[in-house]
Design a binder for these strands. Sequence first.
DNA 1: TGTCCGATTGGT
DNA 2: CCAATCGGACAG
Length: 203
Amino acid sequence: MNKLIPREFYMSEDSVSVARNLLGKLLVVPASDGTRVSGMIVETEAYMGITDRGAHSFGGRRTARNEVMYLEGGRVYVFFVYGMYYQFNVVTGPAEHPHAVLIRGVEPVEGIEIMRERRGAMKDKNLTSGPGKLCIAMAIDRDLNGEDLLGSRVWLEEYRTFSDDEVSSGPRIGIDYAGEDTLNPWRFWIKDNIYVSKKKGLP
DNA sequence: TGTCCGATTGGT
DNA sequence: CCAATCGGACAG
């Protein structure tokens, strides 16, 4: 067990497939005392580089914020948004190929008590069911930006796999400004899992 | 330097 | 439905 995901997994240029295959992987971010805090990935979105109007790297945009998107696959891209939330991404593909996969939901596996403390008086179903929520629960912030997923501060492990009939896909969330790219089915999630983020207004 | 707005969330 | 809350991107 505890099988580390190797570099090759992240190096694929097919970021949509990587997003699909990240489902079921275990995201591990040890607490400061070394305690394992982890969650199984249940929802992802692919951001497809310079041709994707929804991506920070659209049009070749390259700034201090998104610089790590241009590194080789297997790096962590963390950014801050809405004045209060962080978002955790996995960089994919070779260097100078600024694709990434946003992790939008995880199911708590280890260290759930620590997650509860970090999230305050929230019901368990709200601990990690959204990209901002899981960053709070797993103590992911700006400090992890650029970190290597083959290092010792944050990494992914094999955990379990899901067949295609257990997985759904559809348009990404919160990118209404992306024009013709808004409707691309680049979001993936595990059917019926309660840690998939809830879109406002849906059951 | 000034303005606009966001890969969200939680409460009304 | 909407406020919170502030850094990044870009215009000037």
